[in-house]
Computed example of a mutant assay.
Amino acid sequence: MKVLIDQDKCVGAGQCVLASPDVFDQRDEDGVVVLLTENPAAELYEEVREAARICPALAIELDEA
């Protein structure tokens, strides 16, 4: 799995951080998402999928090929 984020779409809701704190963080100054790891470990896949699913701005894209 490869995680892609679009910081321009991000609205700083923080749902991704709550769902998967090992993969996502937020910038202190504006709350925009920060990707901690582009290729998360397999045991994190489900929480990363959940983060993408609940993102209100659809700023997270997953490449599972």
Rank of each mutant, 00 (worst) to 15 (best):
V3Q: 01
V3C: 02
L4C: 06
I5E: 04
D6K: 07
Q7F: 03
D8T: 15
C10D: 04
C10A: 07
V11I: 15
V11S: 11
V11H: 03
G12T: 09
A13S: 15
A13W: 14
G14V: 10
G14Q: 06
G14L: 01
Q15P: 05
S20Q: 08
P21N: 00
P21V: 01
D22N: 13
F24H: 04
D25L: 02
D25H: 03
R27K: 14
D28A: 14
D28Q: 14
D30L: 04
D30S: 00
D30W: 05
D30R: 05
G31I: 13
V32N: 01
V32C: 01
V33K: 00
V33F: 02
L35Y: 09
L36C: 02
L36F: 03
L36T: 03
T37P: 01
N39K: 00
N39Q: 03
P40N: 06
A42N: 08
E43Y: 12
L44Q: 01
Y45I: 06
Y45D: 11
E46V: 12
E46A: 14
E47C: 08
E47H: 08
E47Y: 02
R49C: 02
R49M: 04
E50Y: 14
A51E: 11
A51C: 11
A52G: 09
A52H: 10
A52W: 10
I54W: 11
C55P: 11
P56K: 08
A57G: 12
L58W: 15
L58C: 10
L58K: 15
L58N: 15
I60R: 08
I60H: 09
L62C: 03
D63Q: 15
E64N: 15
